[in-house]
Amino acid sequence: MKTELTVNGRRERLDADARTTLLDALRVHLELTGTKKGCDHGQCGACTVLVNGRRINSCLSLACMHEGDEIVTIEGLGEPDRLSDLQQAFLSHDGFQCGFCTPGQICSATAMLSEIEAGWPSHVSDDLDRTPELSSTEISERMSGNICRCSAYPNIVEAIKEAADRRRG
């Protein structure tokens, strides 16, 4: 299967078995190993990447379904000398222990803040129509698709809060 897609701003041509997931294409074919494989079944969020600006689990998608799509991985959000605001906030707040879930957490949080900006409600929003607040309860619910086996949750929530507060100015 030949597939053309954009990854972190670069045009890539893949030639892979149709069974190749987007996750394996990124890690094995394009050697972008920042994106992690936890469960490989949509249950942990370690494989979260952005596709056309939206967060998805790359383990539950086939690479060949992404012809023409724009993918952004943790490498595309920022690198050690130019960290994104969320990457910096995770560092400042110790938002991790082993770090395995962190790329997925940061990709997920990046898209989650855009979802809030777009006014999407969540399961814990009292009012479906009001602009959602950025309380700890809202952050936890919206980030529930990202499991942290080290349970760094309190610091993850603090990191996301700080980045969001800075963005709001």
């Binding site: 967060r55 998805i56 989650m112 979802e115 409600p121 479906l128 129509d129 980030m143």
Partner: peptide, 29 residues
Amino acid sequence: LAGDPRVRSSYPVLARALLAGASGQLRNK
């Protein structure tokens, strides 16, 4: 579907059911 203004105002039971399912990543797909 959960975010659609018409669903949120006229069919809130549907928006609520969708938001109670799976995760943000899965609902996007």
